Simulated scan of single mutants.
Amino acid sequence: MRLAVCAEMVYQELPFVERVERIHTAGFDVELWDSRPKDIAALKATGARFSSMTGYSAGSLVEAGTADQVVRTAGELIPTALELGVERLVVHPAELVDGRAARPHWRATGDMWFTAAKTLETLGALGEKHGLTFTVENLNTILDHPGIPLGRAKDTLALVKAVDHPNVKLMLDLYHAQIGEGNLVDLVRHARPWIGEIQVADVPGRCEPGTGEINYSAVHRVLVDLGYEGTVGMEAWASGDSDLALRAFGAAFGAASGER
């Protein structure tokens, strides 16, 4: 399995390109959020391998009136993804503004579910055309993302299963799942066939593995048992020194044993 680190959340004292260089030098792939304000040529010149980035910039999967914006802006971002060699484009069950729902919905409806599924079908066809995978990320609505409909892992997984397209997968975020649902080992086992990438951070605090309550060594053992060969990304703040945070992440997921 490959390990990646979200450059948005570590080495905060450094310019963004230098963060990517530090992550790459440490032997990890790189996750991005919004690529639009970034110097794409400079990022490409680092030689880093980019595992994922945000795959839309407007609209909501679940809203019939704005779902077309998700597809349109996804198409606008695809050239950047192809230039950087990004493998997965991440979408969410709502339009986010500073991490919060642009238009909060406190109850999911059947129409929302149907709209999300149809939009993901369209994104799947777009991904197939360009050799990219769109991944739907689960989010917790208790702490970080109130007002997000269909945000729990069981909901995003149900959407991905219903769409049943090889270019639509689950971005399984275990930090969010722990806050909203728990039972992570069984969740990983159940979701395995539909996982495009896994993201991790500890609870509470959203810092590197080993700083909270989640037994990530146990999660790693299950992934090995399941034969998972995809990417695990640390989408987490460094609790202190970023170098130490990356080492802790690597140790939790077998980097010391040469599995990365």
Rank of each mutant, 00 (worst) to 15 (best):
M112F: 08
M112D: 10
W113N: 06
A117P: 06
K118C: 13
T119V: 13
E121S: 05
L123V: 14
A125G: 03
A125D: 10
L126R: 08
G127I: 11
E128M: 09
G131I: 11
F134Y: 14
E137T: 00
E137K: 00
T141S: 12
T141C: 12
D144M: 11
D144Y: 07
L150Y: 01
G151S: 10
R152V: 07
A153V: 14
A153T: 14
K154Q: 15
D155N: 14
D155R: 12
T156M: 05
V160A: 01
K161H: 06
D164V: 09
H165P: 04
N167D: 10
N167F: 04
V168L: 03
K169I: 00
M171W: 10
Y175T: 05
I179G: 11
I179C: 11
G180L: 10
E181G: 06
N183K: 01
N183G: 08
V185E: 07
V185C: 09
D186T: 12
D186S: 14
D186W: 08
L187S: 02
P193G: 00
G196D: 09
Q199N: 12
Q199K: 04
V200Q: 04
V200G: 06
V200M: 10
A201F: 08
V203Y: 03
P209A: 07
E213F: 09
N215K: 07
Y216I: 04
Y216A: 01
S217P: 05
S217W: 10
A218D: 08
H220Y: 09
L223N: 00
V224I: 06
D225K: 08
G227F: 06
Y228K: 01
T231M: 02
V232T: 14
G233N: 13
M234A: 15
E235R: 05
E235V: 08
E235L: 11
W237Q: 12
S239D: 08
D241H: 03
S242L: 12
L244F: 04
L244Q: 07
R247D: 14
F253P: 02
G254K: 03
